[in-house]
C-alpha cells in the first residue's frame, strides 16, 4: 500500500503558462527511499514543495490531479494539518533556520515547542536528534555562526526531530564535505529502515547508487524513467538528456571501447561494482596481490 500517491499531477506556478510538473504518476511505499534526479529546472524542487504541501497551499497556482499522502488528500487538507505527516528540508538552509533562536539546541527544539511537547520529552528528543546527525558539539553555537554544511545538518536535524512519516529533502547535502555527505546519507538510510519514507532530490549519483531503493529521473517536469538505481543510473537515456553520471559509470562506458570492461556486465554505479568488473579484465597478478 503506497503511503505517497501522485496521480496525473500537473502544476503551473501562478501567472505562468508552462507546467513545471506534467502528468506525474508516482507511488512510494512506506519505508522506501526514493531519489529524484534531473537537470536544473526539471521540477525536482517543485515536486518536493508539492509533497510538502507548499504547492498549492503557499505558492497557489494551478494543481491538477491527485496528491495523497498517508491516505490524506492534499487539496482538501489545510497546510497546518498536512505538515504533521510531512517534513521538508529546503535546499538552502538559510530558508529553514527560524532566525528566532540563539542556539542550535533551541533551533532544533522550535518545532516541538510549537507542538507543545512536554519539556523533558523535548530535551530528550533534541538530544537524540543532535547525536544522530553528529552535531552535539554545535548545540550551543548560534545557527548563523555556522558554515553552510553545518547549517544544512541543523536544518535536517530540525526536521528529523519532528519524526515525520514522510521526509522530503531538497539536495540536503549540497554544501557538505564528502565524508559528511556519506554520513548523512547513512542517517537517512537508517531512518528509512525504521519505516520513515524518504523522497530526496539530489545530484550526487554516487551516493544515490549506494543508498537509495529507487531512482526517479525527471526532465522538463516529466518522469523520464524510474527504477532501481543500477538500471536507471546506467541508462544511456540519462547521458543523452544532460543528467550527471558517476565517474565509475562513465569510465566503464569508455573502457568498453577498449575491451577493458567485461561486455556481459552491467555498467557499474558504485566503487565496489567498478572494482569487481575491472578486476575481471585486468586481474592483478598473484605478486601484486602480495601472494
Amino acid at each position: 500500500m503506497a503511503i505517497v500517491n501522485l496521480q496525473n499531477v500537473t502544476y503551473k506556478y501562478p501567472l505562468t503558462h508552462t507546467p513545471v510538473l506534467s502528468n506525474i504518476n508516482l507511488e512510494v511505499k512506506e519505508g522506501e527511499f526514493v531519489a529524484v534526479i534531473g537537470p536544473n529546472g526539471a521540477g525536482k524542487s517543485t515536486l518536493c514543495y508539492t509533497l510538502a504541501g507548499f504547492v498549492p497551499h503557499f505558492f497557489k497556482g494551478e494543481l491538477e490531479g491527485k496528491v495523497e499522502v498517508a491516505g490524506v488528500d492534499l487539496k482538501s487538507t489545510p497546510l497546518n494539518e498536512w505538515v504533521r505527516n510531512v517534513g521538508l528540508a529546503f535546499q538552502n538552509p538559510f530558508n529553514q533556520i527560524s532566525g528566532a533562536k540563539y542556539t542550535v539546541f533551541e533551533e532544533i527544539a522550535f518545532g516541538l515547542e510549537n507542538q507543545g511537547v512536554p519539556r523533558d520529552e523535548m530535551n530528550r528528543r533534541v538530544d537524540q536528534a543532535l547525536t544522530m546527525t553528529g552535531i552535539r558539539d554545535l548545540a550551543d553555537r548560534s545557527p548563523y555562526s555556522l558554515s553552510g554544511g553545518q547549517q544544512q545538518r541543523v536544518a535536517l536535524t530540525s526536521i528529523l526531530v519532528m519524526q515525520p512519516k514522510i521526509l522530503v529533502l531538497d539536495e540536503p547535502t549540497s554544501q557538505m564535505d564528502p565524508i559528511g555527505t556519506r554520513e548523512v546519507f547513512g542517517v537517512i538510510r537508517q531512518m528509512a529502515e525504521r519505516g520513515m519514507t524518504v523522497i530526496m532530490a539530489e545530484h550526487k549519483v554516487e551516493w544515490i547508487a549506494e543508498f537509495a531503493d529507487r531512482v526517479v529521473a525527471l526532465k522538463d517536469g516529466k518522469i523520464l524513467l524510474q527504477g532501481v538505481p543500477a538500471d536507471v543510473l546506467t541508462s544511456h537515456l540519462l547521458a543523452e538528456n544532460g543528467f550527471g553520471t558517476s565517474r565509475y559509470t562513465s569510465a566503464a562506458r569508455e573502457a568498453l571501447k577498449f575491451n577493458l570492461w567485461p561486455k556481459h556486465l552491467h555498467l557499474p554505479t558504485t566503487l565496489q561494482e567498478a572494482v569487481d568488473g575491472f578486476n575481471l579484465t585486468s586481474a592483478p597478478s598473484p605478486k601484486e596481490r602480495g601472494e
Binding site: D177, P178, L271, V275, N279
Partner: peptide, 19 residues
Amino acid sequence: LAQTYVDPPQLTRLGKRLR
C-alpha cells in the same frame, strides 16, 4: 584527507583498489 572529511576522487579510489 579523511582527517578533514574529504574522500579522494572516485577514479583515484578506484585506481588504488585496482592497484
